[in-house]
């Protein structure tokens, strides 16, 4: 079973890795984010499979952390896009 899980981990990783082509090619930033998102889910699956397959139970905690933060990049992207904030801070110098 362990071998199978490790192999499956490798397979999932290879699959999501293909998606990285979108990361480079875009064309839109949304596409790049999607590629990252897919890699995130694939990475979580890989970690879970490794936790079972390679006998590292704590890897589940790492997967848990990744899952908690999975939306972070996209949230930062959406919120920092122009128009998301009501006003740009003005550029007065201190003093």
């Amino acid at each position: 079973m362990a071998e199978f899980l490790v192999g499956a981990a490798g397979f999932v990783l290879a699959m999501v890795a293909l998606g990285l082509v979108r990361l480079l090619r875009g064309p839109a930033d949304a596409d790049r984010l999607m590629a990252a998102q897919l890699l995130g889910s694939g990475g979580i699956a890989t970690l879970l499979l490794l936790a079972g397959g390679a006998g590292v139970p704590a890897a589940v905690d790492a997967a848990l952390t990744l899952a908690l933060l999975a939306a972070f990049a996209s949230v930062a992207f959406v919120r920092s896009a122009p128009g998301a904030d009501p006003a740009e801070p003005d550029s007065t110098e201190p003093r």
Partner: peptide, 30 residues
């Protein structure tokens, strides 16, 4: 923990879909 991971990923995925879709619709990505 396994189920929690899945639920969290679902939540993140759903949110991201919403946010990105709206960003795309709002006249393309900024």
């Amino acid at each position: 923990k396994l189920v929690a991971v899945w639920l969290l990923a679902q939540l993140a995925g759903a949110t991201v879909t919403q946010l990105v879709a709206r960003a795309v619709r709002r006249g393309g990505p900024p």
